[in-house]
Design a protein around this nucleic acid. Structure first.
Lengths: 156, 156
DNA sequence: ATTAAAATGAGAATAATTCTCATTAACAAA
DNA sequence: TTTGTTAATGAGAATTATTCTCATTTTAAT
């Protein structure tokens, strides 16, 4: 707990400030938690984590803030196929964007870096081409591969 | 209504049969509806469509069957970011797999064919490489680009 | 036609998310 | 540092999407 450095905190402060939003205690707690984990937590799970830390944020506050953080691009939301939103921090310093391998059976998620095999270049080119063709302003993307993880493909 | 040809019906019949499942009236209705539209319908919307056709399937039956059809690969499910599942027919004869451009503001969805710009080749290679690296049996994938459609980017 | 298994419909139950509103905290400016 | 304005919070009620239950009905192989 209290993982965020002073630098990170002021960075988040400024990002929020730009939108007339404040870096409140619950927001700091959420960012703290997401920054600290490699997991893809649901709102409920994040809520439980905040209870462990001192910060007692209400569940509705968690939801409200996740929505905000996603909207301004500080966190990233996706659905691993079980009808509940998962959240992860948008970018870590020095770490490149990643995509997912999602197990249909146990819902486990593997992150893989998007920087290998020219994937980044490919996507960039694709985005440009699609933007032009469809007059669509692309802001971000998600690439998910679904299937069976090693464990689940072994167990029948 | 009654869009499915005799050939298509027997194709679906066989696919279901392989899993000891029957081609019932509600199932035929769902496939009929999904086959007929370019839209990405929610369960509720599909339910309403079945009411328009003679077929009066219950909502729970719709959900049950969508789950089945997704599981055996006849339809495809995804989330356009509004926390409700959308469904589309998995493959149309002679049409290649497609991906999505999703507007964050109005939730509209544009399909684009995955067959241009070597996208298909790229994905295939990527799948092979990821399968090996992570010991993960990939069955399918989704690629979604999020942003603003033309209309929404114009309206501020 | 008969029959066993699979599927259905209606609605209750659950789970995830959003809303309401009175109270509190953040922070810019004095 | 105190203050005033405005944003944000917490608690729980309300809503929405989805799943479950179970008695009844269909399906399709025999």
């Amino acid at each position: 707990m209290a993982n965020l450095s002073a630098t990170e905190i002021s960075w988040y402060y400024n990002r929020l400030n730009k939108c007339c939003c404040r870096l409140t205690k619950p927001r700091r707690a959420i960012l703290d938690i997401l920054d600290d984990t490699r997991k893809h937590l649901s709102a409920e799970q994040i809520y439980k984590e905040t209870l462990k830390i001192s910060s007692n944020a209400g569940l509705s506050t968690i939801y409200r803030n996740l929505e905000l953080l996603v909207r301004i691009g500080l966190t990233w939301e996706f659905d691993a196929g079980d009808n509940k939103a998962r959240y992860e921090i948008a970018k870590r310093p020095g770490e490149s964007h990643h995509h997912h391998l999602i197990c249909k059976k146990c819902n486990s998620i593997i992150d893989y870096s998007a920087s290998v095999d020219n994937e980044k270049d490919f996507i960039k080119k694709r985005e440009k081409n699609l933007s032009n063709k469809y007059n669509f302003k692309i802001e971000n993307h998600s690439i998910d591969f679904f299937g069976l993880c090693y464990k689940c493909s072994k167990n029948k």
